[in-house]
């Protein structure tokens, strides 16, 4: 399949990008989701705005204890350690397991998060981390807590006139524990269950269960899960009333493994 006709725009600066967005252009970052959707004619935009050449779209900067990751930073860059410290280790571990390296070479953290595929890796991890998604709109930047960014399947807190500009995360102390588990029958398959648990010294542990064909389940205080992973995973998954017993089993397993790894 080849895409239906569309026009391609490459905005040189952010105001131009926002103007294109206001005119209805579909933003594209790494194109690892939108590309196939265009080819399959599942997405039929009249115009595509390529964000990759915007100034500062990719790259990482430190402001005190805050790490700002440009939305256009590729999974591969994160895998290769562009983010410093314990946080960087955790993010690199997640990035390493996203699809294949060719996908990671082009796919971006912001593009993936804003696309909000329920099986996507960042949607299953970022909501557990302390930080914000930085939305850029006509009025400037807006900070959206990461746990509140993904609202549903392909649905986010971004407004129609906003672009995801960056992810801001708090640096993590070296003693932070992190557990991450996902189920794919082979690399590159969409996850059928992903969970992560973050245990930061001096703070309540957090957890996310994702790849549920719905918005991720964000657990703001995962102390009970850490205390008794098996029982609490079963209880949490039971509340979701998943129809498919296999997917429910995977969800329980994901939460349990992630919690055990984070202890």
């Amino acid at each position: 399949m080849k895409p239906a006709p569309f026009t391609y725009a490459r905005p040189a600066d952010w105001p131009a990008a926002l103007a294109l967005l206001a005119e209805g252009a579909r933003p594209v970052a790494g194109g690892q989701s939108l590309g196939p959707m265009l080819n399959l004619r599942l997405a039929l935009p009249e115009r595509v705005a390529d964000l990759r050449h915007l100034p500062g779209y990719a790259g990482v900067s430190m402001q005190g204890e805050t790490v700002r990751i440009g939305a256009g930073t590729t999974h591969a860059a994160i895998e290769d350690g562009v983010v410093p410290g314990r946080l960087g280790e955790i993010l690199a571990g997640v990035a390493r397991r996203i699809a294949y390296r060719p996908v990671r070479n082009r796919g971006t953290i912001g593009g993936s998060f804003a696309h909000a595929d329920p099986a996507a890796d960042w949607c299953a991890v970022l909501p557990a981390l302390p930080g914000h998604a930085i939305a850029l709109g006509p009025e400037g930047e807006r900070r959206i807590p990461l746990a509140e960014f993904v609202l549903g399947v392909f649905e986010t807190a971004l407004r129609g006139d906003e672009l995801l500009r960056a992810i801001e995360l708090s640096a993590l102390p070296p003693a932070t524990h992190f557990g991450h588990w996902k189920f794919c029958r082979k690399p590159g398959e969409f996850s059928k269950a992903t969970a992560c648990v973050l245990a930061t010294p001096g703070a309540a542990p957090t957890a996310v269960l994702a790849a549920l064909d719905a918005a991720p389940l964000v657990i703001a205080d995962a102390s009970a899960l850490l205390a008794d992973p098996t029982a609490e995973a079963a209880r949490l998954v039971a509340t979701l009333a998943l129809e498919d017993p296999w997917r429910a089993a995977l969800a329980r397993t994901a939460l349990r493994h992630a919690a055990e790894a984070a202890r």
């Binding site: 196939p36 399959l40 029958r185 082979k186 690399p187 590159g188 398959e189 969409f190």
Partner: peptide
């Protein structure tokens, strides 16, 4: 299944 993300083929790792 309309793509090879839905129709799984074994790869080198399988």
């Amino acid at each position: 299944a309309g793509t090879l993300a839905d129709y799984l083929l074994p790869g080198a790792t399988e």
